[in-house]
Nucleic acid binder design. Sequence first.
DNA 1: AGTCAGCATAGCTCATTGGCTATGCATGGA
DNA 2: TCCATGCATAGCCAATGAGCTATGCTGACT
Lengths: 113, 113
Amino acid sequence: MGYEYRMSDAQDALFKTLADPTRRALFERLCREGEKTVGALTARAGVSQPVVSKHLGILKQAGLVRDRHEGRQTHYSAQLGALAPLIDWTREMAHFWQSRFDDLEDLLKRMDQ
Amino acid sequence: MGYEYRMSDAQDALFKTLADPTRRALFERLCREGEKTVGALTARAGVSQPVVSKHLGILKQAGLVRDRHEGRQTHYSAQLGALAPLIDWTREMAHFWQSRFDDLEDLLKRMDQ
DNA sequence: AGTCAGCATAGCTCATTGGCTATGCATGGA
DNA sequence: TCCATGCATAGCCAATGAGCTATGCTGACT
């Protein structure tokens, strides 16, 4: 066993990963402009190359990007599917909220009779 | 001027606020179970009352909750609408991704002729 | 008036983390 | 073979932040 995979862990990793502005900017660029090398990303990131590499590593670990090696450069691209847990979470919150609202409506309706 | 309101600031605040598990748990409880007092929230939060108050303050500042004073207790409730910027952001990322995909399809289609 | 209860604030500590420079490692070209 | 280039890793530092205890403040009850 050892492993027990909880859904909230995925959400936690996503929120934590996207909480940093530099990291979110990198991910946004990859979403907007498609695949890019580390050098190209560094050029307009406003931080040093090692920092960019580090952030890309964290994004990769969260499943938000994937890398492809070609000679001595590494190409990164966004993995949009990784956002699913985040979308699910918001949907879930909205659902709970709506449910309570419906319950209240039900109650009021029954009280009305 | 001093003030210039950027959209990304709202996203930043949301991501940062929801990145903390304790805070997210508090918000989730308010979504699931509706309005609760600080005492009720503290009872099952696993952290001390001052910590809960602090987190609620941060959630409030991000617009995710609102408070209502009644006697000597404070009732907090979730403000689901505050999640809008987060939903918009994910939609935007998905859109960019899809656009590039469409462009590629267009290109292939034109090459095919 | 005095006391307790509920919540907020203050002040502290420790762990985390985002940034840097320096360096390592592999690839491509002369 | 030797050097340059592209990226990753290591090690450090300063800032941030989440937790705690102690205390302050206000409302309720006797």
